[in-house]
Design a binder for these strands. Structure first.
Length: 218
DNA sequence: GTTGAGCGTT
């Protein structure tokens, strides 16, 4: 019976988190408790489960009060055969709340988010959206179809991210209105379109000869 | 009833 706290993570700020991988899908925290408890006092053991089926995902988290016990458990239980499977014990990384973990220990040394650091926000948002799909349930073998779709979305995001101030659609429409669609014929001579490069657009005084037109006039 | 890279609160 799991006598661990089920109301969220306990004092995870002073505990060392260990990640147990390669555990059987039928292995429960009670099965790992006697194994990890032999190397130290286990604060809590948590096994992530699927919200749909409720089965364990194949890995568990074990928390210790001291790093020595955790390290000893890693060295002693790493490779131990449990339920017919050799488990892999190692220090856990960052948690769901991006908790700062230093060598397995969670510290409160969380740097306060600055104002101009918001530029990184969108990227994290993509990551969250990516996880929202079934990023954890990927089988790395049958998810090829979904991978194609994700890649397509990634491309779209990249193109939209390139825009800094104006949208590419606006420029495209604007260009189409200014010029007739007939000019867009690819068979119109082999010469390139007289249109300027979008990257150079907005920089009329761009030094092409590598020298500023203003300085060195002599 | 199955599977097997990874990082967490039902």
């Amino acid at each position: 019976m799991s006598h661990f706290r089920r109301s969220g993570p306990p004092e995870n700020r002073d505990t060392f988190s260990l990640l147990v991988l390669n555990v059987s899908f039928r292995t429960t925290a009670d099965d790992l408790f006697p194994l990890f408890d032999r190397y130290g006092d286990v604060v809590d053991i948590y096994i992530p489960r699927d919200r749909r089926t409720g089965d364990s995902r194949g890995f568990a988290f074990v928390r210790y009060n001291y790093e020595g016990e955790a390290q000893d458990a890693v060295d002693g239980l790493d490779g131990r055969k449990v339920d017919g499977r050799a488990i892999m014990v190692q220090f856990a990384k960052y948690g769901p709340n991006s908790e700062k973990i230093h060598r397995g220990r969670i510290t409160e040394e969380i740097p306060k988010p600055r104002g101009h650091f918001r530029s990184r926000s969108p990227r994290w948002r993509y990551r969250d959206d990516y996880r929202d799909r079934d990023y954890r349930r990927r089988s790395r073998s049958r998810s090829r179809e979904r991978y194609d779709q994700d890649r397509y979305r990634d491309s779209d995001h990249r193109r939209r991210s390139r825009t800094r101030s104006v949208s590419p659609d606006y420029d495209r429409k604007h260009d189409r209105n200014s010029h007739s669609p007939a000019h867009r014929s690819p068979s119109h001579g082999k010469g390139h379109s007289p249109r300027r490069i979008p990257s150079c657009e907005g920089t009329p005084s761009r030094p092409r000869d590598g020298r500023s037109p203003r300085s060195g006039s002599h």
